[in-house]
Design a protein around this nucleic acid. Structure first.
Lengths: 212, 212
DNA sequence: CTCCCATACTTAACGTTGTTAACTCAGGAG
DNA sequence: CTCCTGAGTTAACAACGTTAAGTATGGGAG
């Protein structure tokens, strides 16, 4: 009697349709420019149908966000990790920035919409924390290898995160051509990650890096 | 025949009423939570009246933003500037962060709303550019004094700005208690400015700073 | 086969939003 | 006194998120 399984599969299928349609619209427009009605139009259902699968717009968009965190985690995990711990941190930062600038609308919603982080408490290990864990691990390696100055791992990781976030946020929010004396976008990202890394180098690490 | 002057004065008065009412609501709630009707209620005029003074909601909120940039500039200008150029940069960064975390809604709108920067081109020297000019000047002094490594002034200033912006953005958008292993808010700000400054110190500057 | 009912979906509506067309009406100009 | 400018209001529009009420479809029970 696989009827209930089939039903569930069909239900999941509609849910997927909604999610992908919403993601497409979302990726090209912003949060408030995407309306429930337009999502419904895109999948050729009535607007009310969406409410059979999601509590409200916030719920829908949070489900989307959940998946995006997973994508981010996978994106970071797939970047090759060089043997040099400092270079590994650098590559991780660049990959993070690549994600943010490539999918500005998703990034905006993930990290720049106030009060959207509650669901992080739901799972014990959310994708968001997993992603942060990658950075944490890289920083730990850099500290223990003597490249980074000794200090709190979490704080160091957070500072790196905050700096990169700032670069990404500026780039995707204010069109660079409008602010004073802007360097090209990828340039800013590299300058920020390099400067922040330099700020954490131990004397020994700095010497080693100079010698290469 | 001062009648037209009086009329103009009255008109300006209503305009001011709108602006201050909008600012109050705006400061306590977000951009989209403040409606034209509520602003109108607050000043005891009909909603349509606002449209006699401002093109639309964006125009109103941009006028508000204009003023906020001016406030930011004055806030930065009023912070005491120590003789040590590095310390001056540091204090400037901290003052900037204080502004951002004290007025999160204004800050959000100034720097985190996409495509709101067009008006920067209107004036030759906008308050935004003036504020950036302060940072630029401080950085120039630090470089010319031999404290900061030689390099493009604008790029260095932008990196400092981006880093601080990242710290502020994280703090005011995601409530810190929700992210993993968060340091206290002012701590993060200090850690970020210190790390970034260290990243720009010339060897000579680092030595001088160590010796104090 | 028939009745029934759960479930997926739609239609139609409500209240709220930004915005505008059409008006009222006071008061100085001629 | 008449006219006209312009600030302000009323009433409405379309679009939004959301919901109550209704329709159909299709498998299980008698």
């Amino acid at each position: 009697m696989g009827v209930i399984e089939r039903r569930e599969r069909e239900r999941e299928e509609v849910r997927r349709k909604i999610l992908t349609a919403a993601r497409d619209l979302f990726a090209s427009e912003g949060y408030d420019r995407v309306t429930m009605r337009r999502i419904a139009d895109a999948i050729e259902y009535s607007p009310t149908t969406i409410y059979n699968h999601f509590e409200d717009k916030d719920d829908l968009v949070q489900a989307l966000c959940q998946e995006d965190f997973d994508r981010l985690f996978q994106h970071l995990q797939q970047t090759p990790s060089p043997a040099d711990p400092v270079e590994a941190v650098r590559q991780l930062g660049l990959a993070y920035a690549r994600f943010g600038t490539s999918y500005p609308n998703q990034y905006r919603f993930m990290f720049m919409t106030p009060g959207k982080f509650e669901y992080l408490k739901e799972d014990d290990v959310s994708p968001g924390e997993q992603a942060f864990g990658l950075l944490r691990a890289a920083v730990t390696a850099a500290i223990e290898g003597g490249y980074f100055r000794r200090g709190d791992v979490d704080t160091t990781a957070q500072v790196l995160w905050a700096s990169m976030h700032g670069a990404i946020a500026l780039i995707i929010n204010l069109q660079p051509q409008h602010w004073p004396h802007a360097p090209a976008a990828p340039d800013l990202v590299e300058q920020v990650i390099d400067a922040t890394i330099r700020g954490f180098l131990a004397e020994q690490g700095a010497a080693r890096r100079r010698g290469r």
